[in-house]
Nucleic acid binder design. Sequence first.
RNA 1: GGCCCCGUAGUUCAAUGGAUAGAAUAGCGGUUUCCUAAACCGUAGAUCCAAGUUCGAUUCUUGGCGGGGCUACCA
Length: 596
Amino acid sequence: MDIENTLQLAASKAIEEIYGVLPNLNLVQIQKTKREFEGDFTLVVFPLLKISKKNPEVTAQEIGERLVSSSKAITSFNVVKGFLNLSLSYTFWCNTLNTIASTIDFGYAKSDSSGKTKMVEFSSPNTNKPLHLGHIRNNLLGFSISRILQANGDKVIKVNLVNDRGIHICKSMLAWQKFGKGETPENSGKKGDHLVGDYYVLFDKEYKKQIEELQAKGMSEEEAKTKAPIILEAQEMLLKWEAKDSEVYSLWQTMNQWVYTGFDVTYSALGIEFDKVYYESETYLLGKSIVNEGLAKGVFVKKPDGSVWIDLNDHGLDEKLLLRADGTSVYMTQDIGTAVQRFNEYHLDDHIYVVGNEQEYHFNVLKLVLLKLDYKWTDHLYHLSYGMVQLPEGKMKSREGKVVDADDLVEEMVSTAQEMSQELGKLNELNAKEASEIVTMIGLGALKYFILKVDPKKNMTFNPKESIDFNGNTGPFIQYTHARIQSVLRKAIEVGIVIPHSINPVELSGKERELIQLVSAFPSVVKQAAEILSPALLANFAYELSKEYNQFYHDFFIIKEEDEKVRQARLLISHEVANAIRLSMWLLGIDVPNRM
RNA sequence: GGCCCCGUAGUUCAAUGGAUAGAAUAGCGGUUUCCUAAACCGUAGAUCCAAGUUCGAUUCUUGGCGGGGCUACCA
């Protein structure tokens, strides 16, 4: 139980004793005392006036007196307007610090302790183009959420559903056939996913050209789009693929393989990995039998042309297609099939889809369809719907090549980190291998933090020119704080000072209490982040903690402190702050260096 | 047209209905014989508009205005 809860209970008990009424717990609001007032925690008394039937000051005074006399930990209080500010004893804070220090991975639940299994699907790339900044947000969110759930004691299965089939892949294939002249990753030196992506762009260019030509001959744009020879060829190629035409099929395999090899490099650069990879070419037929069941139950309707629909007008939505007239399935059909399959196979408690907010409608429909089919777990499907990443000039368009490429971005971040480290002379005493590891850590830290600190559901703008900072509220700032602490601890050991595992009670400064309090709140941050699926909470936590520590570091001696008891407390605080930073950053998928 | 999301300093982000709306960055001015200055301190600067609910609204409701998304026999 965290400190707020303990105080909440103590306060409600005090209120019952004084006024004879046990207050509803949501009326007993405990919050951190604002910086400008004295105290550690504050009880907001306004909601309690109904019970006390007295004015705010008197009510606060009475509760304050009762709490001080009944609790050893609460030593004093002051009242400002309707706010009762409580101060806790230094013994209490030292004990809190000792508890933190004696807990392994403080803030994380024991692995698999929740007994729940949760699947997180993320990444889900198309195999016709390389990953871009939008995918990076998806990957980072998915990976971070997986770790957060894991830290809450869940068994997590990270899965990737690769969209490896469809008309868009045929476009790349066709353009390669027509214009590629046998280009391969090997003979061109291009990364496979980029090579395939280039042909996707090339297709679009040619397609647009043909549309213009047809329009020049008097055809409407609408018609030109459907009659351009190259799009007809692509459609034909898709049919051949579905018929497993050997030539098309083997080209498809070859080009997809190029892409996978490329993706692997990107994933590995980002530190992303999966427990299982699904391929749409293997799952796209799933779901048909379930649709037929629904038809038999009368949940779905078949139109005269043979297509199958669900009518969701009752739910404020419209009709949605589930099977085409020719009997082939659509995306929805597949998602129905895979959901059922996964719940059956893994006995999932929750299934989280990390997918952009442009697909909210799709997931609403998916849940409703499954609900109507009477599956009991539909409440356990979550769409982690994140906002788009936009460029200053608007949406990224991969067809037009207007994207921030993932590989380029990572490379640029790392090389910027390299330049800055060099300039600051940070790498002077390190060998090449260490230096390169640290520089990579910093570049990636900057990128990942930049993206994850933003509330997932919000859209974000990325300006490639202004790029990503390394100072202020950034990943490197937090990494630096960690490195700084490690440096202090190293130096302490060098001069023969032992880092304590626990301390004796000692008077603490406000800054020291603040640090202990922040670290003590870590478990509840981890828990809340899991509840609302938001890595941003951990980013904020790590930042606030780092900021506080840097002020502390600036204003206080640690090793040089002569009072041994005080020095021990400061060393232990430093040690625990470093741990909390490391553990919170790990949940973001960001590593922290021991020097930088 | 219908449905959904978002409007906070110049910019990028915070704020379970609670105190004087926090940070960072950019600007201006400072700190290094002192454990890492990728740091620290000071200064200036914002809740789109209008009603309503409330002891109290950036937060909730309604209506405007502005931006984005969805509304395919695409995924």
